[in-house]
Amino acid sequence: MTGFYGHRPTTSERHHSWELLRRLVHMYPNLPWLIFGDFNEILRDEEKSEGRLRPLCQIQRFSSVVADCALKEVEFRGPLFTWSNGTVSERLDRGFLNPEGASLFPNALVQHLDVGASDHLPLLHNLQGEVSGRKERVHRRFLFESFWTKDEQCTKIVTNTWGNDSLVSVQEKIKDCAENLQQWNKEVIGCVPKKINALKESLQKFPIGVATEAEKQQREAIKEELEKLYSYEETIWKVRSRLNWLQEGDNNTKFFHAYAKGRGRQNKVEGVFNENGVWCDSMSEVQQAFVEYFSNIYRSEGCVDMELVLNSIPCKVTEVVGDSVSEFCLKVLNEGEDLTNVNHIFISMIPKVTKPK
């Protein structure tokens, strides 16, 4: 761990700071390293507000030394700027990890604390990735797992639920079907990785070359169940990784898992900046920021050819639920059926940058 201070009085002397940084990074090349402090320089134009524009050559020199040293910037939470003289604001303070440090602490975070009388904000580093303040617990919504379709019981549950005459509306059938699938998944499917480990332990009791016919059958039954669970596991991580170009069946589970974990870290949003540039990380603040931003985006100005739009939407309704869903949609279009109970939207943000905020 190293505290760093960039040369401030004259920018022409700042190259000494960058040369020092290059020497430091090569002193212990194989050890995890965190370097943080006041670098007295910015990496991007948006890290300065008001005042004269920062010369591009200065930014490029700082960027070059970061690249030459293979340093990874530690994700921050809080206000963008860390220094202000009352007029000009800049982000001069930050932290970096070398490749070994980034591998050891992939979720490291630094929080910009807006406290104290200094013209610099203090930095609170947490290598485990947790920032101060309690996070509100979010109720997890129902998610249909694609690997369920590999089990015949899934189809039976959907068919039986949809054929239940006591459930009149589509809303009731959707709700009941989701609850039944979740219960079945919990009681029958269970935690796939744990089941795999348990079966692997059981398989050790029946090694290759077991003597009796009963033991051979037991071994084959365990192997068959393992093969099914491996298929489930691979499908789970393939969906989470979203690597549609890589086919299942080639024992790619570890690759899918690693890719999904990395993608999850990259896409995770701890908070957002609202339209006024204020950092929001509580549930209510983030909700309000999204409402303000999207209130004028998702608004229709009318459609010239609705038939063309509808014909462009691929049909995904199965034979089991098709009639009920089609009937409900026709009631909405022709009779003004109330959509209040089903008109829920989950907005999925597709990040255009790494580590979105």
Score class of each variant (00 low, 15 high):
Pro9Gly: 02
Val353Cys: 06
Ser64Pro: 03
Leu20Asp: 07
Ile208Tyr: 14
Ser348Lys: 15
Glu248Val: 05
Gly86Leu: 07
Asn40Lys: 13
Asp119Asn: 08
Arg23Asn: 12
Leu127Cys: 00
Leu199Cys: 00
Arg94Ser: 00
Ser132Asp: 05
Ala198Gly: 09
Leu229Phe: 12
Val188Asn: 09
Glu187Lys: 12
Pro99Met: 10
Pro79Tyr: 05
Val65Trp: 08
Gln128Ser: 09
Thr11Pro: 07
His16Pro: 01
Leu113Arg: 12
Pro351Tyr: 13
Gly133Phe: 10
Tyr298Met: 14
Phe206Cys: 05
Gln287His: 15
Glu337Trp: 14
Gly262Pro: 00
Met1Asn: 10
Ile196Val: 10
Gln217Thr: 09
Glu41Asp: 06
Val192Lys: 02
Leu229Tyr: 14
Thr212Glu: 06
Val291Pro: 05
Asp250Tyr: 15
Arg141Asn: 12
Gly3Met: 08
Gly271His: 04
Pro32Cys: 10
Cys329Tyr: 12
Ile208Asn: 06
Val110Asp: 00
Val115His: 04
Val325Lys: 06
Ala211Met: 13
Leu339Lys: 12
Ser282Arg: 04
Asp151Asn: 07
Lys150Glu: 06
Phe4Arg: 02
Ile157Phe: 03
Ser12Cys: 08
Pro29Arg: 14
Leu123Ser: 02
Leu123Thr: 03
Phe328Ala: 04
Ser89Arg: 11
His15Cys: 02
Lys194Met: 11
Leu143Val: 15
Val170Phe: 15
Val110Cys: 02
Leu123Pro: 05
Glu145Val: 00
Asp114Met: 11
Leu104Pro: 00
Ile59Gly: 00
Asn334Gly: 08
Asn252Phe: 10
Leu97Phe: 08
Phe62Lys: 09
Glu100Ser: 05
Glu225Val: 06
Pro314Met: 07
His139Ala: 09
Thr11Leu: 11
Asp114Tyr: 08
Thr159Glu: 01
Gly86Ile: 09
Glu47Arg: 04
Ile222Pro: 06
Gln287Ile: 14
Ile208Phe: 14
Cys69Trp: 11
Trp148Tyr: 06
Glu187Phe: 13
Pro314Val: 10
Val192Gln: 03
Leu31Ala: 14
Thr149Cys: 03
Leu310Met: 12
Asn98Val: 01
Phe147Ser: 01
Ala211Tyr: 13
